[in-house]
Design a protein around this nucleic acid. Structure first.
Lengths: 223, 223, 223, 223
DNA sequence: TATGAATGAGTATTCATTCAT
DNA sequence: CATGAATGAATACTCATTCAT
């Protein structure tokens, strides 16, 4: 990168970087899409952000929608890997692994960029580019849901969770607890309208959810 | 952005009567907005649906965004009343009243129109007409949240729920469990990608949530 | 017309002429299309020529192609009427009526505008707007051909033309003799490449054609 | 217009070899141009059809227009030779030689490719690439016309045709009879709008034309 | 020679908004 | 009050052409 620039001290109008271009384009595109929304994003802006001209975008991608699709896919692959990693050691109790995942996700959402993509999808894209939306749902959202479901199933098998818990539904609940609260809180201004400390939202949310799953041996003494 | 464009309605020489004739306009508008999304809705379409011409819309409303704002507000007032009614007798146990509300809401969502407004807000509008979105959040969404919060507080006071439950957070969880699941399931195609029976989603969802709130006296025998 | 302008001495940005607009638009459009060709015609140019803005075009017509179609149709109706008129008295001998038509058409082609529409159709439009081309062929060109055919049939019935002449084919020959020669001569520069006097082209062309149709009683004496 | 853009080919340092490799390029180009029209033809398509890349085209030709020009010229040379050959033995009577030529041309037009080039020139090219059009007219069309003219002159000299026939005009008539009818019939859908058998069109067309030229000795007996 | 990445000028179409009537 | 004609700004996409490699 830096060395490339040393080679061409004056990046002339004509710069040729066939290898790097597509990925640079995708990064720039996702950045702009996330910030502005799908519809409001001008391809000119994306091009400028990537340091190329509009024509170059069409050299690599068939159009606005395809550009977004490629950008989203590229990102999803990274994310899925990150999530799996965040689950940690498989030998740990499931409730620990879930908590680990849960906290890791919330932590990642400290970065506005991470949230914006979620908002982008559920907001603009679901209407303006339904094809991209469906792909994102299928390849990312549903994948995550299945992962959560199987985690909860494991918890049941390990005796960690109630045997009568509906894992499918519980996983959905957890997912929405995370995604929707994050959006409401950070992106949709809920924290201004009905303030709540970030920490409380995260910790107590997990607590209520976990209590819904676990056996309650100690209630008598605690109450 | 868009909010900058909001025009302060000019008090014209002829007194506008936004309360009288325009009601049919608002109904038609919300119908079209909900079906098409905010951006994709053409004022021509709204006008045709209302049986007037585009110019007439501008008699009563300052623009597209103001039209939506008025339409949403009109609807919200009705909805809030409905919800209060759905809670039923105040002397009933809170868990019963919550369940009653919960089922009543889900039932109402049988009607696509009822869902679409929610989708409209969270999708298109949150980006394209943030002013409207914020108003809707403040006047509707947050109001509902407060209602749920106070219900749960009542439940704690009545000894129906754990004393250590965080009512604010639990209310958020319940709200997201309802809204987000509904959107995923009915509007965003989740049911096609990861099918689940409507009944199970509703019943088990409430079950997991309620267990997270309540004391668990009977676990010992069951386990 | 003129009175309208007197009423609005300063034609402001907003001029309202609902009645006249469409026809004015069509005239301006055909003018520009004929001069530039279909593809090369910019709707901006048409709008400027008609003294309106581009948007106004779309108020009345669905798009570029539809605009051309309407313009062509409008013109065709006039032309067909003119041609019928040029044929003159039905009681005259057919060879006289054909000659009258023939000369009248050539005379009309003195006006460049009259030729350009023909060139427009056969050139640009046949490829870029095939729908319009087909309509023009069907409603104009073929109609003219039929008229010529029936004229020649009448000539045969009247004993003016040989009984063994194929009227269908002869009509085609005459039509192409007129149209194609005109285009070659005036529009495609044939007169510069292989000059020939206009008069000779017209008169001798008719002569050769007519001799092909008629019985030849007087050849003996002439030869 | 477009002609202004014609670039004078730069004599580059490396000697271009427009005669050698480019021939396949020219064949591919004419094929695509004929099928799609000038404007609608993408140089990418031509390149693909020739099995090279777009850049290569610019090695050999200065641009789109020059490419077409070269392709048309190359073809014309072949065609002129073919036509001379089709005329056959010079000692045969002219009317026979004309008929031979006439039928040979029509037969060749059985092949769509042969017609398409004519259509290409008269349609698209005459507007979009007038430079090419003029060259084609001068080097091909006019040459053919002269050939026909001198044939008819010979016919007059041989006493085969009337002495008072205007050979220039008659040749034009014949040429248009052939070219224009062919285009109308095969390329512009006339046969669908006003059907006529191919054979009748060809034979009767020649008949009417020839009668216009010849002395009519036998009419009395035949009629 | 040949490639193909990069350019950038060019344009039909949409639609919220205005305003003469 | 109501109409609907007129506006004009805004934008994705195409493709001939250039040029570094």
């Amino acid at each position: 990168m830096a060395s490339t620039k040393l080679k061409t001290p004056r990046p002339s109008r004509w710069e040729r970087r066939p290898e790097a271009r597509p990925d640079e384009l995708l990064d720039a595109a996702l950045e702009v899409f996330a910030a502005r929304g799908y519809r409001a994003t001008r391809l000119d802006e994306v091009a400028r952000a990537a340091g190329v001209t509009k024509g170059t975008i069409y050299h690599y991608f068939a159009g606005k929608e395809q550009l977004l699709l490629a950008a989203v896919r590229r990102r999803q692959q990274k994310k899925i890997a990150e999530i799996r990693e965040a689950l940690g050691d498989e030998s740990d109790p499931v409730s620990v692994r879930i908590a680990r995942l849960y906290h890791s996700v919330w932590e990642r959402w400290t970065d506005p960029r991470a949230r914006q993509v979620l908002r982008l999808m559920l907001s603009d894209v679901s209407i303006e580019a339904p094809e991209v939306f469906r792909t994102w749902m299928r390849e990312g959202f549903v994948t995550n849901l299945r992962m959560l479901t199987s985690l909860i199933e494991q918890g049941k098998a390990q005796g960690d969770f109630r045997s009568d818990v509906d894992a499918e539904v519980a996983a959905r609940l957890l997912q929405s607890a995370m995604v929707f609260q994050m959006l409401l809180h950070f992106e949709w201004g809920m924290n201004e309208l009905a303030p709540i400390s970030n920490n409380r939202l995260v910790e107590q949310g997990l607590d209520v959810f976990m209590r819904g799953l676990r056996y309650e041996h100690h209630r008598d003494t605690e109450s």
